[in-house]
Design a binder for these strands. Sequence first.
DNA 1: CTCCTTAATGAAAATGGTTTCCATTATTAA
DNA 2: TTAATAATGGAAACCATTTTCATTAAGGAG
Lengths: 157, 157
Amino acid sequence: MPRGNCQGQGWWHGKFRGCGYRLTTGREAILDILSRSEGHLSAEDIYIKVHPRYPNVGLTTIYRTLDVLSNLGIVYKLDFGDGRARYELAEGPKGAHHHHHLVCTGCNRVIDYADFIDEEVELLQQTEKGLGKKYNFRINNHVIQFYGLCDKCNGKK
Amino acid sequence: MPRGNCQGQGWWHGKFRGCGYRLTTGREAILDILSRSEGHLSAEDIYIKVHPRYPNVGLTTIYRTLDVLSNLGIVYKLDFGDGRARYELAEGPKGAHHHHHLVCTGCNRVIDYADFIDEEVELLQQTEKGLGKKYNFRINNHVIQFYGLCDKCNGKK
DNA sequence: CTCCTTAATGAAAATGGTTTCCATTATTAA
DNA sequence: TTAATAATGGAAACCATTTTCATTAAGGAG
């Protein structure tokens, strides 16, 4: 079992309690799965992973919890254009690094990349600042994604 | 009636015919509406605009046509995260300029901006090139969008 | 520890944008 | 004009997500 868990298993408890949310079995189970899994899980993916150990956590609770987590900034809600939302821990005990996504429209594979992240982030921050001022917007999120065909899907046709 | 229509009303005919698509009343009506309207129309928006003049063009045809147009690169299919797709002419007779989008999550207003487009596009091209080579991807699309609250929605709460 | 308020829950039903089915119509090449 | 078949519309299906509502359980007060 890897070291590096910031504050033990309950690192999110504070954030939860601080906002008046109750700690429940379902919520802990969902966060547990999210922190054990590599990103990009759909609600159903999570349901399937949670269900064996906690058969009485319903899909509705998954959706509701993900909504809360997303609002708290604990998870990112992602949209890769395949009709279902995906979720990944914003920054878990594993200390995942900031990255963007490269989506294959052939097989829906998603590659996390961080190669040009610094330049991208710098430009994004500049742009956010400029746009925020010009249009009087309070920008609090951005999406940058590339779509294309991976080598496998590219060869196929 | 503004000048500037490149090749008259039928500028898309060639692209259509060249790909084996037939020219139908419905398709012409939809393209007509798209080129007369300012961007970001949903399928239903288009249906409502087309219906008075062509009451026998159904919503199904709207969806099917938009899919064709999107595949031909004549329209962009946009997703602003509100659960319905939006469409805008990629480059019509009006000669719309390339732009990105700034989305208010409060009122769903969308602002087209082109302020940092040059820098953004340059970085995107570099990144596409680098990522394409490193991951052996044929990248053919990207999304860059900012989300936030416009001045109105920001003040409200 | 027990009680009480009310947030949280699950199952089922509803929602709503989009797609599919299929019999009919219309386009276009010959 | 005709024949082949692409395109169509209306209804039904689809399916991820949300809502409803009666029940359960978290956690502060005592």
